[in-house]
């Protein structure tokens, strides 16, 4: 990796200041994407602002019908959290299925959401559950947050503080893994809330995570796997690579969505 200046602030304000003071700085949360990128010399930031020392970014709180997870909370902590397991078991299960134990003990929800890798799991949960992403400046609904491949609504220098999930009535996530990387080749998160059913798909879209309105309306009137058996996402909007053609991904979306509906709890 190339040389960079390293900062480890202890407050959000200091972190934002360090970042804005840098010529070409970047935040580093768990580093699960950034560090390998640096090691391969595919990125050359002038400054790295490590968020690991900011206490207020850690932790999980449940208040009423909302589960709020601090940006620096690891996947492992979410997976093991009794509160999350009780409030949104599908979210705990999703976190427990990210990467491997090493990744889960380093990787964070804030890092994953900010990075918006098209094959990451959390964006699907955020979209289907109707999460709110809280930054140092504002609150952004998930539907407006994920704007494209590795693109989000975050402004330059803006950082995620926490992600809040309203408790659904039922939810389930089904992931079909890329056999090599074990990222989501297709991941489908289905959530039923008072406001209806939402279906979000990760791993497959050319622009990253997306919702499937046809499935949502079918499921809103009939919450069963059969209701969406004939609903397919247009392959022209999907990714194609050596592991899965767009056609195969389209097929898997329907299969995984059906399985998620069958697994709703």
């Amino acid at each position: 990796m190339y040389d960079f200046a390293y900062h480890k602030p202890s407050s959000v304000a200091d972190a934002v200041a360090a970042r804005s003071g840098a010529e070409d700085g970047t935040f580093v949360a768990g580093g699960m994407t950034l560090v390998p990128t640096l090691k391969q010399r595919l990125a050359q930031p002038s400054d790295l602002v490590d968020l690991g020392g900011i206490g207020e970014l850690h932790g999980i709180t449940v208040s009423g019908d909302t589960v709020t997870i601090g940006a620096m909370t690891t996947h492992g902590a979410v997976a093991k959290s009794a509160e999350v397991q009780s409030a949104i078991p599908a979210l705990a299960a999703l976190a427990g299925g990210i990467g491997d134990p090493q990744v889960r003990n380093r990787g964070t929800i804030g890092g994953s959401v900010a990075n918006n890798d098209p094959a990451a799991d959390y964006p699907a949960a955020c979209m289907a559950l109707g999460a709110t992403i809280k930054t140092d400046k504002r609150e952004v609904p998930a539907d407006e947050f994920f704007t494209g491949l590795f693109e989000t609504a975050l402004d330059e220098g803006e950082m995620i503080v926490s992600v809040s999930f309203p408790k659904p009535e039922k939810a389930a996530y089904q992931k079909f893994i890329n056999p090599a990387s074990r990222y989501a080749l297709v991941g489908v998160f289905v959530a039923k809330t008072g406001g209806g059913v939402k279906v979000a798909v990760t791993g497959a879209g050319q622009d990253g995570v997306f919702r499937v309105p046809e499935m949502e309306s079918a499921l809103s009137s009939n919450l069963s796997a059969d209701a969406i058996a004939d609903v397919a996402v247009d392959a022209d909007t999907l990714n194609s690579d050596i592991h899965a053609s767009a056609e195969y991904r389209s097929h898997l979306i329907t299969v995984m969505a059906k399985r998620a509906v069958a697994a709703l709890s």
Binding site: P179, A180, S181, Y183, I242, H243
Partner: peptide, 23 residues
């Protein structure tokens, strides 16, 4: 079931890491 080396038509190794070469 898992492993297969893939080159593209230009001779670039597509399965050049564990992201794509399935160990």
């Amino acid at each position: 079931l898992l492993e297969g080396c893939v080159y593209d038509a230009d001779g670039q190794l597509v399965t050049g890491s564990y992201m794509d070469y399935c160990m």
